[in-house]
Each structure stands twice: as structure tokens, then as C-alpha cells.
């Protein structure tokens, strides 16, 4: 049974962002593991702490993306409006198998953009990058104005263009592919031009006309 994240933090659904932060900070102080060292209650506190963190993340995520503002907790989907919130939570907590099962249970004609986005997230968590990029693409196509789907899709597109994080600092590794698309002849020309520039700087000249 899923709990309402607002109830966990002890605030109303209309609470402002500041109020949420305040409530969250107080609860964190209350359940902080430092206070429960060598205490038999430490496990309970840890559980509570995880619950509070998750609730806070969820509320903030929802407010940021502006997706779900009304919660249907305890509502067991009767086919329509499947419980994507709990799927999101399963993915966040690393429960990928269950999340995938819940998604697969949704009938094919009821799969909306969010379904494809979540399916993409499941694939991504598994490391199935090709499938993930396919599903994110479908989600972004179905709802082009959704920033969450667009961000996921853009990231995949960016990565699939050959970008590698950190390659900029590597000796001998031009950004992207190590070989530019130019042919060998083009590279030779570039090299000659460079050599010419160097020579000119040193007072000589390799290519007399420039």
C-alpha cells in the first residue's frame, strides 16, 4: 500500500515549497542516523529516513515537472489511469523487475506517453540503452511539450551522436570521433597548413604562396 507523500511529511497538498522544505528539514533532523548510533531504534529511524527522503523527492519532482498534482493513493487502477506514481517509485528504489511487470500489465491500447517514458526508464536502469532510446523517442513524440520526456530524449540523442564525457582532456582524442570525417588527403592539407604556420612563426616558410 502506497502512502501519500504529503502525509509522510505531515503537510497539506496546498503547502508552499518553503513549507515543504521546512517540514522535510525538521523530519531529517528528527530521524538523522547520528542520533541513533548504538540505539536499537536505529533501524526504524533508517526506514523512516528513507521514507521521508522519498516523499520529499517525489513531491519536488512532481512540482518541478508539473505532472501529477492530485494523488490517487490507495486507488487500485481498474484498467484505466494505471498507477504510474508507484511505478516511478519502484524505479527510483531500484525495484526494476516489479516496475516492468506493472508496466507490462497495462493493455496495449492504453499505453500513453508516460507509459513509454517509464518503459524507457526501466530499460535504461537495466542498461538496455537501444530500447531505452526507442521508448524515450516515442514518449517525446507523443507529448512534444512535456519537458521530462524531451530531456530524456535529448540526452539519448546527444549521447548517440558519439559524445563521450571527459574526452576533451585526453591527449590525442579529438572530441567525438578520433578521426574527423575528412579524408586522409584533407588531414594532410590541414597538417601542411599547420606546419606552414609554425614555420612562419619561426621565421621560415613551408608554402611560399601563403
Amino acid at each position: 500500500m502506497n502512502k501519500d507523500p504529503y502525509k509522510i511529511l505531515g503537510i497539506s497538498q496546498n503547502a508552499s515549497d518553503d513549507e515543504i522544505k521546512k517540514a522535510y528539514k525538521e523530519l531529517v533532523k528528527k530521524y538523522h542516523p547520528d542520533q541513533y548510533q548504538d540505539n536499537p531504534l536505529s533501524e526504524v529511524a533508517e526506514e523512516k529516513m528513507a521514507e521521508v527522503n522519498q516523499a520529499y523527492d517525489e513531491i519536488m519532482e512532481d512540482r518541478r515537472t508539473g505532472t501529477a498534482n492530485s494523488y490517487n493513493y490507495g486507488y487500485s487502477g481498474d484498467g484505466y489511469g494505471a498507477d504510474y506514481q508507484s511505478v516511478r517509485r519502484m524505479i527510483q528504489s531500484g525495484n526494476i523487475t516489479n516496475a516492468d511487470q506493472a508496466l507490462e500489465a497495462v493493455a496495449e491500447n492504453q499505453r500513453n506517453a508516460e507509459w513509454f517514458f517509464l518503459k524507457g526508464s526501466v530499460c535504461y536502469s537495466r542498461g538496455w540503452l537501444g530500447e531505452a532510446s526507442k521508448f524515450f523517442g516515442i514518449a517525446a513524440q507523443m507529448e512534444p511539450n512535456n519537458p521530462e520526456y524531451a530531456a530524456a530524449n535529448n540526452r539519448m540523442n546527444y549521447n548517440s551522436s558519439g559524445y563521450m564525457n571527459g574526452s576533451r582532456n585526453v591527449y590525442g582524442a579529438p572530441r567525438g570521433t578520433y578521426r574527423s570525417n575528412g579524408d586522409d588527403c584533407g588531414n594532410t592539407l590541414t597538417a601542411l597548413c599547420c606546419a606552414d604556420c609554425c614555420c612562419e612563426m619561426m621565421g621560415g616558410d613551408l608554402i611560399s604562396c601563403c
Partner: peptide, 10 residues
């Protein structure tokens, strides 16, 4: 797939 994998590796 290779580019996506390389990006994750990096």
C-alpha cells in the same frame, strides 16, 4: 548502440 554504450562507459 555503440555510441550510447560508449557514453555510459565514459
Amino acid at each position: 548502440s555503440i555510441n550510447l554504450s560508449l557514453a555510459e562507459i565514459a
